[in-house]
């Protein structure tokens, strides 16, 4: 549905220009800041580029954030895969059963979708520290799963609802049980939905700050906590922080660009059909 209308094209051009300004400016400020010296930073002339570019800021930033990138990757990928997997199982059940039990379950899951971590933060910290899971990646992984599995279940279930039952019925006639049905028939055609669920879960976990801060230990510090830390408390090292942030954004960005296509496809397949 494309138009040849000139006035529409003008509007498009204008909007594109405005958007360019609004979205390029912050990233410009970020890049310029990451290449400055601390003294230039403290002059707060954000727009003015520096003449002697401090590329070593990036080396320094990488040295500082490298361990936390590993931690964040382990935690985010583990949570993403597990949440998508468990969410697929749970979502399938939610979408296929009509029992009163499932109706109650659906409401419980729906409420869980909206809960911020603040609601369970105090017991969660107690629990993770008491069981010593807080000292390992397991603590954060499990914590993130608590809220992301219900979310993934709903996202996956929405997709499963749109799959025609005939496929499963045919397989059922051949004598397949529920698990076989799910893994051999339903899941393979649901990969786009897995991809879109994965994107949503991954970006949420990668960028989460509150829980990562509360449960941080030297061995499990995530990139977001590290980003707050490298700024320092004495002299604000925004140059290092911004260089670190630009390094840190590469992984989710790659994830997004790579899976973005699946995301669109997944949605195209009808996951969000009104």
């Amino acid at each position: 549905m494309r138009t040849r209308d000139l006035s529409t094209k003008l509007i498009v051009l204008l909007v594109t220009l405005v958007l360019t300004g609004v979205y390029v400016l912050p990233i410009y400020v970020m890049v310029v800041t990451s290449l400055k010296t601390p003294v230039e930073i403290s002059q707060r002339a954000y727009l003015i580029p520096t003449r002697n570019l401090q590329f070593q800021n990036y080396a320094e930033a990488f040295r500082l954030v490298y361990p936390s990138l590993i931690n964040s990757s382990i935690i985010s990928f583990a949570v993403t895969l597990l949440a998508a997997f468990f969410g697929g199982l749970g979502g399938y059940y939610l979408s296929r059963s009509r029992s009163p039990f499932v109706r109650v379950l659906f409401i419980l899951v729906g409420v869980a979708l909206y809960l911020p971590y603040q609601v369970i933060l105090i017991p969660l910290v107690q629990f993770m520290a008491k069981t010593r899971m807080a000292l390992t990646h397991m603590g954060l992984i499990l914590s993130y799963l608590i809220l992301n599995v219900p979310l993934a279940s709903v996202l996956m279930g929405t997709f499963f609802l749109s799959i025609p039952r005939e496929l499963e019925e045919a397989a059922q006639v051949d004598g397949a049980n529920r698990l076989q049905l799910f893994f051999r028939v339903v899941s393979p055609i649901s990969l786009p939905a897995y991809a879109s669920t994965a994107i949503i879960v991954f970006t949420q976990v990668w960028n989460e700050f509150l829980l990562a801060l509360t449960l941080s230990t030297p061995r499990t510090t995530t990139i977001q906590v590290k980003l707050a830390e490298v700024k320092g408390s004495f002299v604000a090292l925004y140059n290092i922080q911004m260089a670190s942030a630009l390094i840190g954004v590469l992984i989710p960005l790659a994830f997004f660009l790579f899976l973005g296509r699946y995301f669109i496809r997944g949605v195209l397949a009808g996951a969000l059909k009104g």
């Binding site: 979205y23 990233i27 942030a245 954004v249 994830f255 997004f256």
Partner: peptide, 11 residues
């Protein structure tokens, strides 16, 4: 307009 999605609010 999509790149901010990959960034955290800390940044």
């Amino acid at each position: 307009i999509l790149y901010p999605v990959a960034m955290s609010f800390v940044v």
